[in-house]
Design a protein around this nucleic acid. Sequence first.
DNA 1: AATCATCTCAACCGCGCAGAC
DNA 2: CGTCTGCGCGGTTGAGATGAT
Length: 332
Amino acid sequence: MGHHSCCNQQKVKRGLWSPEEDEKLIRYITSHGYGCWSEVPEKAGLQRCGKSCRLRWINYLRPDIRRGRFTPEEEKLIISLHGAVGNRWAHIASHLPGRTDNEIKNYWNSWIKKKLKKPSKSSANATSITDHHHHQQQHQRSQLTNYNTITSQQDIFFTQDIGTKSQVLLQDSTLFNSPNQLFFFDGASLDSMTNVIINDATNRNATTNNTSLFQETSILNAEFCWQVDQQQVQTSSYAIGMDSNYLPPLIGSMVPPMEIPSSNNNNNIMLEGQENNNELNEWNSQVDTQQCCPSYLFWDQENGSIGGDHEIIDPTTSNNMGQILSSFPSTL
DNA sequence: AATCATCTCAACCGCGCAGAC
DNA sequence: CGTCTGCGCGGTTGAGATGAT
C-alpha cells in the first residue's frame, strides 16, 4: 500500500517538523479546531498530509501533553495495564493523562521490555529502573509535610490508578465493605473504571477468582458508595481549562513513595495465555515496593480524615482544597 | 579525539474499522 | 450489499543523541 489518499493529492513534506510548521499547525488548530484532518494541511498552509498533522498534534503539540520521564507510578500502571490488555497502547494511554500511546509504546519497547528480558537480574534492574526517579521522589518527600503513611489494603487500592483499580476489583471484591467511606471520583474516571471492567469482561474469556464479572460489576453499582459530590467533583476535575500554556500538574501533585507490604500486592495480574506475565509480575512486585501515587483520595466520613486514621485534612477549607484537588487526576 | 555501538523517540507505514454514499 | 474515504491504532524505521572503547 502506498501513501494515503490525502498524501497523494499533493507533494507532501515528510520527516521532522520544523518550528515554523509547528507554529502554523498550532495557530490553525487553536483557532479553528481540527474537525477534518484531511483539510487541516491545506487550510493551515502546510505541505503535509492530514495524518502527519494529526500525529504531530496528538503526539507532540497538544497543550496537555505531559513530557519528561515516566514516574514509577506510571511505570507500574503501564506494566499492570499491559499485563491486562497487551499492546493496546491507546487503551493504556487513556489511563495516563498527558501521555500518548506512541510515547508509552516507545517507553515499553526501549525500556521495560528490555528489562523484563533479564529476569535473573530483576532485583538489581528493578532498582535501576527507578533510579532516575529517586532524586525527584526524595525531593518531593522532603517537601511534603502532610504525608500519610498508607498501610491497609484498602488504602493501597486508593493509591492506584483507575486501570489498576479495576484489576484489583476483579480480583478482590472484598475491598469495599466499609460503609463509612465515600469515594470521590470524577465522572470521567468513573466511566473509565467501569469501562475497563466491562471491556475486560468482554475481552477476556476467563473470569477471575470465584465471582463472576457481572457480580463484580454489580458491586460497582450497589455496594460501592460512589459519592459523586457535584460540588467537589466539578470543581476538582475540570477546573483546569485547555490553556495553551497549561501542562498537567501531575508531577507537582505527586505524593512521595511509600512502602507497600509485598503481601498486599494486588497488581499482580495473571491472565491465561499471556506471555511474560511471570516476569511481569516478578518485576512488578519489586517495583511495587518503590511507591504508589494517591491520584484519588477518599474521605472517611466517620473519622473525617483523608486515608482513614491519618492526619485530618478538611477539604472544605480553602487552604486544604488546593491540596486535595491537586491529587485528583488531571483529565484530557 | 575518533570511531563504533547502543539507545531514544519522532515520524512513517500499513492495516482495520466505521460511516457515507 | 459493495466501494470509497477518513481516522485511529499498532508496528516499524531511522536520524540524532549518548555512551563505550
